[in-house]
Design a protein around this nucleic acid. Sequence first.
DNA 1: CAGTCATGAGTAAACGTTTACAAAAAATTC
DNA 2: GAATTTTTTGTAAACGTTTACTCATGACTG
Lengths: 330, 330
Amino acid sequence: MITIKDVAKEAGVSIATVSRVLNNSSKVSEETKRRVLDAINRLGYSPSLIARSLAKKDLKTNVISIVVPFFTRDFFVEVLRGINNVISKSDYSIHLYNVERIEDKERVFSKEVFNRCEGMIIVSLNMQRKEAEFIKEMGKPVVLVDSYYPDFSSVYVDNKKGAYMATKYLITTGRKKIAFVSGAIHDPLGFMASCKRYEGFLEALREAGLEFNPLLHIQTGFSLEKGYRAGKTLLNRSIPFDAVFCTSDIQAIGVMSALVESGLKIPEDIAIIGFDDISDARYLGLSTVRQPMSEMGEVGAKILLDLLMGFDSSYTHLELPLELVIRLTS
Amino acid sequence: MITIKDVAKEAGVSIATVSRVLNNSSKVSEETKRRVLDAINRLGYSPSLIARSLAKKDLKTNVISIVVPFFTRDFFVEVLRGINNVISKSDYSIHLYNVERIEDKERVFSKEVFNRCEGMIIVSLNMQRKEAEFIKEMGKPVVLVDSYYPDFSSVYVDNKKGAYMATKYLITTGRKKIAFVSGAIHDPLGFMASCKRYEGFLEALREAGLEFNPLLHIQTGFSLEKGYRAGKTLLNRSIPFDAVFCTSDIQAIGVMSALVESGLKIPEDIAIIGFDDISDARYLGLSTVRQPMSEMGEVGAKILLDLLMGFDSSYTHLELPLELVIRLTS
DNA sequence: CAGTCATGAGTAAACGTTTACAAAAAATTC
DNA sequence: GAATTTTTTGTAAACGTTTACTCATGACTG
C-alpha cells in the first residue's frame, strides 16, 4: 500500500504539503504542486478514505441501508425506485440488502450492518418485538416503509381500508359471491399486507351480511402464472362466484386470463379488482386499488434524510392515501 | 461522540482493556469485563468502524458498487438478483447506483464512488473510450455484465447471433415479411443490445435475400403498453407482414395483444418471437430467445469476487449461450 | 522463603490522514 | 540593505482504534 509518506519522499516534500496538494487547501507553489502531482502519478497513489475520515473527524460512512424483501417484485422495485430517486440526490449512497429467508433477516439486523451505515429504511417487513429492541439499541435512525411500528418513523397505507373499499364497491355493484386471491395470510417473513387486506375484505362482507365460503379463498404467490393457476383452481372448485378481489394486480391479471380463457365475460359474468396499480393495470383496464408505491419510497427516504440532518427526532407516522380506481373489469 | 477513552474513564481502566473487552481478545478478568460492559452500556458507546479499520490496517471498505440503468426493467432486476445472490454470501455489501440519464453516469464514474468501494460491476452500459481510461486509472477491479470492452472482464451474450437465430428461424418456417420492434438503436446511454440485435436481424434477412422495409421497424420503449402501441402502429401502416421479432419479451407481449385484438391469429397469420425469456413468456407460450439473465449477474459477481481475492488479474471474457425457445407463437 | 510462572492490566507506538502552529524563504517596503 | 510582510513549507499533534511490550500481582514450586 502506498501512503502519503511515500509520495512525500518521492516528491522530496513533507507529508503536509502532499496533503495540501490533495485538498488544494491554502497556498502551494505551482512548482511544488507539479512535483507532488508527478509523484502521485508515478506511484499510483490514492489516499485512504478511512484515514482521511478519521483525521477529519468525519466519522460518517454516508451510507443508507435499504432492507427490502424479494426485490424482484413489482411493488418492491417501485418502492426502491422511489427511494433511489431521493437518495441519489443527496450525498448518501445506498447499501442494498435483499431478504428472502429468515436467515437473511438475521444477517441484516446485525451490529455490523448498522455500524456500516448512518440509517436504515426497512421495506414491508413487520417488526418483531425483539428485533425492534435490538434496532433501537443501535441508535441509528430507521424508517419503515409499508409497515408500522410505534417506535420508528413510518410511511404506509391502510391495507385493511383499501381492501374494504374494493370489496364494498363490488358489493354495492351487486356482487354477492366474491372470491379472494391473496398472498400467504401468515407470512413467515412477516408481510402483513395480505393479512390486513383479508381483514378488510371480511369486514366489508360482514357489514353487508354476506357469508364467505373459505373455498373461495386462494393463497398463492405473486406472479402472473400463480394468478392464472388460482383462477383455474377457483373455476375447478365449481363454487359459483361473481367477483374476485386480488391482493395484487399481477395476480389479478393472471386470474383474469384464466377466466377469459374459460369463456367468461369480464366484468359481466365476473368482476375483478386488483391492488397496486402497476403500469400494466392501466393498460389492461384493470380496476384496482392504487397505492403510491414509488411515493412511499420517496417519502420514506425523505423522512430518513430529515432524521439524519438532526431535524426533529420525534417519530413521524405518515399514512398515504389509497385510491380505488375503477376501470373496465368491475 | 463517545470514544473508547470515555468508556475507559467511566470504567476506571485503560483504553487497552476496553479494546480487549470489545474484541474479547486475550484475558480480561470477569470483574473488569463486567465493569467495562456496564460503562459501555451506560454511555451507549459504539466503536468507530473507521478508526478500527485504520488501526487494523484493514483499509478496505468491503463494498462493491453496482451500476445499473433503469433498475425497474425486468432484465435489470433479474441481473441484479443474480448479483445479489452471490454477493450476499460474501462479506461484501452492495452499493447501488441507478443510471437513467447522462448526468447520472458522470456522478457514478467519479473518484468518490471508486474510493468508496473495492470493485464495480457495470451492467449493460457501453464504455466510452474516455470513461474506460478513467476507470482503469482508478485501479479497482471492474466487471462488465451484458457489455464488452477489451480492458475489463466481462460476461455477455452474443446479441447479434441471438437475433440472427430468431430471424433465421422465422425465415425457415416460411415468413418473408418480418417486422422488427426494438429499443432505440442509438441509445444515449449506450445500450448496445438493440443495435446488435438489429444487425443480426438484418444479416439473416440479407442472407435469405429478403428486403427489409424500414416502415416495418418500430423503435420504442420497453413496456407492455409501448409494445401494444407498436403493434397498433404496424397494423395502421397497412404494410403486410407475417412475423414480428421484438428485442424484448415485454414488447412482444404488447405487440401480441394488439394483433390478437385485431382478430389476427398467432402464429397462423403472424408469428412472434421475443427476447429474454421472462417468466411471463413461458406462461403465455411466447417464443423467445432466452438469455440467462440472473446467471449473467451471478457469473459477473463471481468474477469480481475472484478478482478481489487477487486470483488471476488477467481479463476474463465469458460469453454465455443464448437459446432459441420455440413455444406457441412461431 | 526465594524463585519461577501465569494472569491481568497498563503504556505507548502504530495505522494514514489533516491542520494549527512555527519556521523559513521570498517579496515588498522604506 | 535592513525591516517588514507575504508566501511557502515543515513539524507535530490530533483523530479513535488495536496490539506488542512491559509491569505488577499473586500463586505455585522446590
